[in-house]
Amino acid sequence: MKEAAPIIVLMAMLLILNSLNSDFMSLKTLLNLMHQVSVVGIVAMGAMIVIISGGIDFTAGYGLAMIGMAAGTVYATGILGGSVYIVVLVSLVCGALIGALNGFLITKLKIVPFIATLAVMSLLQGMSMLIGNGNMVMIRDPSILWFGQGRIGSIPVSFLIYIFFCLVAHTILKRTKMGVYIYALGGSEDATRFSGIDVTKYKILLYMLAGTYTGIASLLTISKLGLAAPSIYGSTLLDAIAAAIIGGTSLSGGKGKVMGTFVGAIIIVLITTALTYLRIKPEMQDVFKGVVILLALCFDVVINKISKE
């Protein structure tokens, strides 16, 4: 029942939207959705992994901007040829390094994730404006643009990349030792430690995994936009965490599924799209998002109560 919740919400949204505006359900809407969901979705997968382990990661938003600026500047200045390979490499490595820093602060210095990642977030905000003096970089290399703008048939490449990394996350969580430990950490960190598992190692690894996902999302962002700027963080961080929560990831850790977060990300993206179709004041978007998140949280609480009784 609980797993079906996000799908029920999504179905209800689609039904309501379609009855209000019959143009809404179309191939065009579906393709747009595929194009728009990838960045939020990938960041949400990273956020979900961290939240399952009982942590939280606030670095994804400004991380997106900082990594984008780093990759964009490497491209613009032509360091190491500025080719697509180096841009991809810089994105992934920067992401992993941010994750490693988070993991280090949390495990070695024992700073709670909330504070540690908040501090790193501020650090990244500053860095995104320092790299290349915060100057916008236009990206014209077609092989870099392919990730975000290319299509195979009419399916956006970015969506296929997103699906691939969903499958990777699913495999890690369900088929590897690390996945088992991530859920165990969220259930009880002490119990996990007492059963002889190297908690430090796996925590650092899981934050690095989340950071790498941010790196991928950043690459897709600059590729979609055809430019890198320090302001590209937008509302990605909150949208991604919201997507994970709407998808049934429990903020107290130990619970969460790739499929749920996948649906959660679609719901988050659809909210703004829907308001454009329905001609509702844009300022209402955040209100609607808030209401959907609250509903998801309430649902969580109610289901927990019922299952306890």
């Binding site: 747009n32 937008g234 703004t272 799209t273 454009t276 300022e283």
Partner: peptide, 23 residues
């Protein structure tokens, strides 16, 4: 006239434009 905010963010602007054009 159809209006949408973009919060000075290129990514938000891109999504808003996509949605407006689709709708």
């Amino acid at each position: 006239l159809i209006e949408q905010p973009m919060n000075w963010d290129p990514a938000t602007g891109l999504k808003a434009a996509q949605d407006i054009i689709a709708a």
